[in-house]
Computed example of a mutant assay.
Amino acid sequence: MTERTVDVGRGISLAYEEIGDRDAYPIVLVAGLGQQLHSWPDAFCDELAARGRRVIRFDNRDVGRSTHMSFRPPRPKDMFLQRFSPEQYDLADMAADAAGLLDAIGVETADVVGISMGGMIAQMVAAVYPARVRSLTSIMSTTGSRWVGRPALSTWRRMMAPPPRSRDEAMDRAALMFRHVGSHGFPPDEEWVRELAGSSWDRDSSLAGIGRQLGAIFKSGNRTRRLRAITAPTLVIHGDRDRMVHPTGGAATVRAITGARLETVVGLGHDLPRGAWPTLLDLIDTHARPVTARSTDAPTS
C-alpha cells in the first residue's frame, strides 16, 4: 500500500493508494465531503482485498494530497442562491477526475463504490462514463433534489460552525459531529474518529477545499434526470438513522436508477462503524461479484 500521485487531466492530480493483488478485479472507493482516502479504513480495505479485489482509494480534488484549487469558496448565501465563481467546479468535474484516475492507472472498468458526496460522484461516473462502471454502489447518498436527503437542522447548525484552528480542535470537532450523525445502533469508536481527524489534519490542514466541494454539490443541483441514464447494476445502501443525508435520499436514488435495489441497514447513521462492517462488506461484495462472474473482460492492470 504505497501512496502515489497521478495527473488525471485538466490540471488536476489525485493522490491514491492500491490495496490487494493488481491482477484482481478493481473496486474504486470514493470518499465523502471533506474526507480523505483513509476515511475508508485500512482494515475495511484489507477485507475487501482479501475477498479478491484490487482496492483503489483516493483523495478527491481539494482535499488531502490531491490538487487544491485557489479560488475563494462560495458563501452559504451564494450556494443557496446559485451564485458561483466561474471557477467553481461541479460533481461532473469530480466524476471526470475519477475517470481520469482510471485512465492514468490503466483500469478500463471497475466496480465503483461511493459514500455520501462520494456516492454522488460515483453516480455521475456511472451516468457519464457507463463503459467504465461494472457495478455501482451508492452509500448514504442522494440525488440532489431539494425535497429529499436533506440534513437535519441540528446537523446544518454544526456544519456552519467556524472551522477548527488546530489539530486538537479538529479532533474534538470530529468527535462532537460523529456523536451527532454517527450510528446509534452500533458501538461507537470515538478513538478512531479522533485518530482519523488527527491524521487528516496532518495530511492537509487547509480546509477551504471543503467549502469548494460543498459548492460542487449545490452547483450540480437536482441530478435525477442524469441518473436515469445509469445502466450499471446499482445497489443503494442507507441507514435508518442518518442525520446528515436523510433516508429519503436513498429512496429517491433507487427511484431514479432503473433496476436499482435499496438495502436499509437498521441502526446505521452517517459513518462506517466497525460493527456494521460485516453487513456492508457482504452487501458490497455480493452485489459486485455476480457482475464480475458474468464479465468476460480480464481485469486491466
Rank of each mutant, 00 (worst) to 15 (best):
G275P: 05
L33F: 04
D285R: 02
D204A: 09
T231F: 01
I257D: 09
D204F: 01
T224I: 01
R226V: 12
L136K: 02
I27C: 11
V107Y: 07
A110D: 03
L207C: 11
W192P: 06
G11L: 07
R150S: 12
V28F: 05
L136D: 05
R243N: 13
M171Y: 03
E195R: 13
G211R: 01
D285G: 07
S205F: 04
A232D: 04
R212L: 10
Y89D: 09
A252G: 09
G106H: 05
A276T: 00
R203S: 10
E18W: 03
A122K: 03
A216L: 01
S206I: 00
L176E: 15
E191Q: 15
L37F: 10
G114N: 06
A197N: 11
G106F: 07
L29G: 10
D297V: 08
H38M: 07
I139L: 09
N222Q: 06
P290W: 13
W201I: 00
Y89V: 03
A99R: 10
S66E: 05
V265E: 13
A24T: 02
D42T: 15
D240W: 05
S145A: 14
R212C: 01
R223V: 09
E263T: 03
S85A: 15
L227R: 04
N60Q: 14
S39V: 02
A260Q: 14
A96Y: 01
E47H: 10
G149C: 08
I210P: 00
H270Y: 12
A251C: 01
S70R: 14
A170M: 14
Y25L: 11
M94A: 06
M117C: 09
T234Y: 09
G100H: 03
G259L: 01
L283P: 07
A24C: 08
I12G: 04
A152V: 00
L207Q: 15
